[in-house]
Design a protein around this nucleic acid. Structure first.
Lengths: 253, 253
DNA sequence: ATGTCTTTGTGAACGCGTGCACAAAGATAG
DNA sequence: CTATCTTTGTGCACGCGTTCACAAAGACAT
């Protein structure tokens, strides 16, 4: 089997934009809610509102999947739920392993949003020997030493890293070596992985920093001249720089 | 363009691209690490590698902040740390309130990454009366009834929502009414907020679904002939009622 | 069957973000 | 002071994503 690609509709699955893929779960959630209320069909306008996006964008997104709508009517909710689920690969079971069972790791293990979408927490792994055997969310924590075997035995291809930053890369390497090809990283670390392995990162403090930026902008709209109280910042070890100063020099003063 | 003024910290927050803002925390983290190792200067190439981005992108990002580098040498680490911190608004203290103290809320309250960057958990709020007074991460949980006063008293402008999806919008409305203008939402809900309020969402299950999509693609590259097994069938009498709901999210309320 | 009305699907224009490639700036050596 | 070498700052081109606007498709009524 070479680079076989002749049997795929080509129009589909071939080129779904990344931005679209990122929105599919959003649509799926909105559609699931409609489904539970037994709503048979929905227009792009309604669904877009429910998902918090533009209707034109939604239609274009769906167009990448195929022509699943009916002009003059809208989209069949159940049908679309199935199509999107299939496209996202949610019709199959995905065993997931969480490495690093601290506060966050334990919270994720208990998180209902995972199990409800075809993701099954297959294993919890931690480096602390004292935790081995301790049940978290009904699952016994296992020790890092057995990581390789645990991943293999459970056929895990998606790993979640919730370790301290210092251990993240090492854990990542071991996960990859064991066969994991998708990683969700919560540790504030830049992971380097070989070709073919996907990494998505969720960084809580970065999100807050982005909010702080906008918050500062909103607040400092008028009082843009009072954040001057902070020291320009130390002169640092200023290695090879003479008194000439390569320092602040600027500082809005 | 920049008519070569070079004195004012460049175009203030006016024209910093959103994509750049999102990367500044990344640079800051890498720079902080260098600073702790007392590295005086760093080139765009080195820093880019450490931050996991392209060096041209990094230089362009920094150019939006101003001309803080020295040609032939690189960037002064300490100076850059200060400039980015200031730009992000991290030179001031940001009191944060977390609403919804379930597993995830508690984990965030304990998360060290917040405090280390100028973010201070000023209040923990939950709707469960039984939790009122209970200390979490050294802070007593307060009841939702006092939300308004708590936000005002602490001057909170950034709120974190970790409630079940059903309560998210209501909590959001109350936070906004109380004066919060930035929200970090962990609930799998589309929040609608008035103009001027920023919302960033962190959706754990969406991240996994995106990974699953790519995972499926990688795995199904050759075996693309078994997706015919499940009958999609249109216009269904709503027979599927499974566990597909996304009700249990963070914690029962 | 024909006409009207609704809603999809998409061509095309636009804007943002990315990366290349290079001239300008400054350090450093002679 | 001049030459050389390093690294920044950025003009430019390209590609992706978003949005508009509308023709085509189909439902529904007459």
């Amino acid at each position: 089997m070479a680079t076989g690609r002749t049997h795929r509709p080509a129009t589909r699955s071939r080129g779904i934009p990344e931005a679209t893929v990122a929105r599919l779960p959003l649509y799926l959630r909105a559609l699931t809610a409609l489904s539970e209320r037994s709503v048979p069909t929905v227009s792009s306008e309604e669904l877009a509102t429910a998902a918090g996006v533009n209707s034109a964008k939604l239609r274009k997104d769906f167009s990448y999947l195929g022509s699943y709508g009916t002009r003059g009517v809208g989209y069949d909710v159940e049908y679309l739920v199935y199509q999107i689920s299939r496209e996202l690969g949610l019709t199959q079971d995905w065993p997931v392993a969480i490495v690093g069972i601290g506060n966050l790791g334990a919270a994720l293990a208990n998180y209902g949003g995972f199990a409800s979408r075809g993701f099954r927490v297959a294993a919890l792994i931690d480096a602390d020997p004292a935790m081995a055997g301790t049940p978290v969310a009904g699952i016994a924590v296992q020790h890092t030493d057995d990581l390789d075997r645990i991943i293999s035995d459970n056929g895990v291809s998606i790993g979640v890293i919730t370790t301290p930053p210092g251990a993240a890369q090492q854990v990542c390497d071991r996960l990859v070596a064991a066969g994991v090809t998708s990683i969700l990283n919560f540790a504030p670390t830049v992971l380097s992985v070989p070709e073919g392995v996907d990494v998505r990162k969720v960084d809580l403090s970065i999100e807050l920093q982005i909010l702080a930026f906008h918050e500062q902008r909103k607040a400092g709209e008028d009082s843009a001249a009072e954040d001057e109280g902070a020291p320009p910042m130390r002169a640092t070890p200023a290695s090879r720089k003479g008194p000439d100063g390569d320092m602040p020099a600027v500082m809005p003063a």
